[in-house]
Nucleic acid binder design. Sequence first.
RNA 1: GCGCCUGUAGCUCAGUGGAUAGAGCAGCUGCCUUCUAAGCAGCUGGCCGCAGGUUCGAUCCCUGCCAGGCGCGCCA
Length: 670
Amino acid sequence: MTSPTYALERKLREEIRSFFTQSSGGPWSGDIPLAPPPNLDFGDLSTPICLSAAKVLRDRPSAIAQRLIDHLRAADIPGVKDYTVTGAGFLNVIFDSPGLAREVLSLAAKTVRTSGPGEDEGFGSMPARPDHAKVVIEHTNINPNKAAHIGHLRNACLGDVLVRLKRRAGYQVEVQNYIDDTGTTVADIVLGLEKLGRRPRPDELFDHFCWDLYTDINEEYTHNPALKEEQKAILKRIEDGDPSVAPMAKDIARRVVKGHLRTMWGLGIFYDVLTWESDIINMGFWRHGFERLKEGGSLIHETEGPNAGCWVVKLGDLPEFAGLENPDKVLVRSNGTATYVAKDIAYQMWKFGVLGKDFCYTVHTPRQPNGQTLWTSISDPAQGSPDGEHPTFGKANVVINVIDIRQKYLQDILRYSLQKLGFPNEAAHSIHFGYEVVSLSPDTARELGVDVEANEKTVYAMSGRKGIGVKADDLIWRAVDKAKEEVARRHPEFSPTELEDLATQIAVGAIRYYMVKYNINSLIVFDFAEALSMQGNTGPYLQYAHARANSILRKAGLLDGATSSSGPQAAIDWEKVEVPAYLEPAEKALVLKMAEFSKILDDAAENNVPSLFADYVYSLASTFTDFYEKVKVLSAAEPERAFRVALVAAFAVAMRGALAALGLPAPAVM
RNA sequence: GCGCCUGUAGCUCAGUGGAUAGAGCAGCUGCCUUCUAAGCAGCUGGCCGCAGGUUCGAUCCCUGCCAGGCGCGCCA
């Protein structure tokens, strides 16, 4: 990892630990907290370690701190200029800012020299991991019976940022999008088409058409209970492959998924493979898994009690399940059919490559907008890719399932069942990335026709059946419209194409950032005004900082075209830039902030915390904005001017990487 | 009933066993002949849900309580 401040902190901790080991006459364990002091006059980094050590060493904290300083000075840590003691005995570290500036510039140079993540170490791109660890990330997973809504958007945006972070952290990542095309959801649409005789308007998107149809047929169920019986009959006919409905159901699912892909591609979200529930069934994944699990001996065939005749996994001895009335989970019903969780276990085994069975595959989309091929599972080998060749899917070291928090219980059952049934390693590497759902604010609910005045709730749950929800496309369209107004005001000279293009980039930035900036434990109470905001802590603010930096570079003659942001920084001779002995506070702050880049990225990637990185990028942008306000670049005298131009260029490089890691477009002009 | 999550400024959210609890929005005051005002500066605004405990020190850790959300099928 290439974070100058991280390297410095590590060395500092090492030396502090060795000091206390010597002083206390024994190994010194325990964390050494390091954080910026409340007042930057004290120093750049501070630790209260001498306060907590006072009791053990039986000495005053300030006296300990003085001796610690002597030790640290002798160690001569690169990047450190000096130390101070303040307050009750806080030890503060003063950085060698010019030295760190030098390192930040050379990081920028490395970033510019390499073309992408995983090749060399620059801002936020680490070399491929030596163990070649493969991470499978499953996200999006929208039922193929209606258009994507803002809840799916949170899932896809979070999943996609995880993908980007993991890739930058050096992992090999495979993105899977699981599609549940079986069950009642698609049957509802078939029934809706047959019973309600509805057809899409010529200009209507098919997935949007299904959104309304799904609502309407669910409304019909409440008036006409007999229809529920017909739903079951349709489902049976689909499952039996009845030629009068089965192909139609398949076609519906295919067309709706096409709609979902259209929406996600527009946001810069791409996949490696689509996996279909129907293929899992057709390929006999569960039958296969069943045989493997029976070998383990922990799958029990009950002969008496409430679960008589079922195959169950017993989870009662695990603390997580201790309080349940019945901690035994049925995997095979007494009638011989597999439960949903059973299929899920088999599917998870496939992801790890321990099922002993694979799908057949064919190309779904030769070139997604990012140029990558999208594959899809199929169950008929005859329809596979002509040469039979396809990439290796699954066989992961780590599996991350991006699924909302309501599924926590089921994901726990999945993981612990794997553990119990003979796959403890796979269980340990199964991660449920569970995030809170998206609900609606009263204002937004009212706009969607909910009778808000009838009650006083502050949060309104979405409901696909009732048609209460915000379609992802509707949000995107509104964001683009709003961005267009603003762009048109600022750039009346733009052609319609340029206008559309820039507004779309800004809209995507606003929506994606809105979806990932929150901690995953917090419910997003969706509000149009907030989601469409482009001021303050928003995506466009981040993009704007980048655009302003590019503007300076353009005027410094380092950018060719008006909107290009590619390759110009190569013109800077990074290594030869003269770094002043004294840095302005705003310059120093920017240097320190950039120096942390890889440390935060690594932390966010390893611990799966997108919001941590989003937060950092916001602070990176606002630190630059502060620099922009306080320090003149182009009108500065040499050699300061050259240094500042280089610093701005380094920021532009870092910010482009940061935006890319979040999946936000990085326009050079706004 | 049991379990999980959440309670921080009017609103939406950061935050950490340590020094004066931070942003954004909203409100009020200013700043565009000066590298893009999608910006910046300032003001107003906090029993960090409540009560105990641990600690030299608690918004943070522990216990209890209150409030809200979610989950607990031989459904998917």
